[in-house]
Amino acid sequence: MFSLTGRVALVSGAGQSVGEGIAQVLARQGAAVIVNDLHPERAEKVAAGIAEEGHTAIAAAFDVTDYAAVEGRVRAAEAEFGRHVDIVVNNAGVAEERVIKPFRELSPEQWRAPIDLNIYGSMNCIKVALDGMCDAGWGRVVQISSGSARTGQNINQSMYATGKSGVEGFIRHLAAETGQYGITANIVALGHQKNLEDKMSPEMIEQILRTIPIGRLGDPVEVGAFCAYLASDEAGGITGQTLDFNGGSQTR
């Protein structure tokens, strides 16, 4: 059950944290994984780790906001695997050029990076894979999002939230357009993940944990398992949905 054997999966932002967990689980379920990251060394490390487990992956370093780069590298990977991409998991979402300030302090030039990454980056990856999926009569799109897309928060992340809100709307329309071709498209809205432990003090983490009913941060492998389910044949009846994966924390 939930086998991905014979499928090819593209996972963006897969060089660390949640993206790494997703890539690992999809590979363990049988998919050949294109491990994307902006930084080659991160993509190569994850792909090598998957290969060490006896599974199939190749590193693919490119900027998802550059359509030509996405198309060129994905086509090369498809040629290497001898099959088109069946599964796209858009996980890349935190722009390196992001500026964490209240909106009133941001210049128009500072709006673009998180919006370009979350909207155009996701659309680029989907566009490159979509014709192959439609022609085959089967495909899966999983968009990683955040509760921030639907909940106003005073945390200086308005542009990140705007990008996530925009791509969620796009995915719902994509699901409606492509369902007739055997393609599903769903959104996984994450809550706080374990990578926060590398960014925040123990005191801040403790405050966050008090808002999460299960009392812990999200685990990348659990997120990967959920994505593997959504990418499987057994999830063929689920499409156009935003599914919260947040340990029960309030997101709307």
Rank of each mutant, 00 (worst) to 15 (best):
I115D: 04
G121D: 00
V99A: 08
T211A: 14
I34E: 09
I100W: 05
D63F: 01
I187K: 06
Q153M: 15
S232C: 04
D116M: 14
S148R: 15
T211Q: 14
K199G: 06
K45W: 07
A225G: 07
L130R: 04
G15V: 05
G236M: 14
M133W: 05
C227G: 08
D233A: 10
W111V: 01
P202T: 04
V223W: 04
I187G: 02
E105D: 15
H39N: 11
R73V: 07
V167A: 01
K199L: 11
K194D: 01
L4Y: 07
V167C: 00
W138V: 01
L106S: 09
Y160L: 05
Q250F: 14
V33H: 00
F226S: 14
I214F: 14
G93N: 06
M1Y: 12
G166V: 04
R252F: 13
V35H: 03
A176W: 09
D63S: 02
Y181R: 15
T65Q: 11
S165W: 15
A43M: 04
E78W: 08
N246T: 09
L4D: 01
G54E: 08
T184Y: 12
P102I: 04
M159I: 09
A228F: 06
T162L: 12
S3Y: 10
I208E: 11
E80P: 03
K164W: 06
G13W: 00
V99P: 10
I205Q: 10
G132K: 02
E197C: 11
H192F: 09
L243Y: 07
I183W: 13
V74M: 01
G224I: 02
V35A: 03
L230K: 05
V18I: 14
G147D: 11
P108D: 07
G21M: 08
L130F: 08
Y67I: 05
A92S: 05
N118V: 07
S249V: 08
V141F: 10
G236N: 14
M1I: 09
G247Q: 10
I183G: 06
I126V: 13
R73Q: 13
D219W: 10
V46E: 03
A14L: 10
P202G: 01
V142Q: 10
F170Q: 00
K101I: 06
S12G: 03
E197Y: 05
Q157S: 15
A60W: 03
V18H: 01
N36S: 02
A51V: 11
L230T: 03
E80R: 12
F2N: 09
A9T: 04
E197L: 11
D219V: 07
D233E: 15
V11T: 12
D219L: 05
Q153D: 15
T184N: 12
D116N: 12
Y160M: 10
R104C: 13
V35L: 10
N195P: 01
I208C: 03
N186T: 02
F103I: 02
T184F: 10
G30I: 06
I50A: 04
E222C: 05
E234V: 15
W138K: 05
S145F: 03
Y160D: 10
I144Q: 03
G72D: 02
E203G: 01
Q241F: 11
T211V: 04
A185G: 12
Y67Q: 11
I208V: 15
N124Y: 10
A14M: 13
H39R: 13
T162C: 12
A235N: 14
R112V: 08
R150Y: 11
A225E: 12
W138Y: 05
F170P: 01
P102R: 00
E53F: 11
G166Y: 00
A9H: 06
N124H: 09
V70T: 00
M1C: 08
A231P: 07
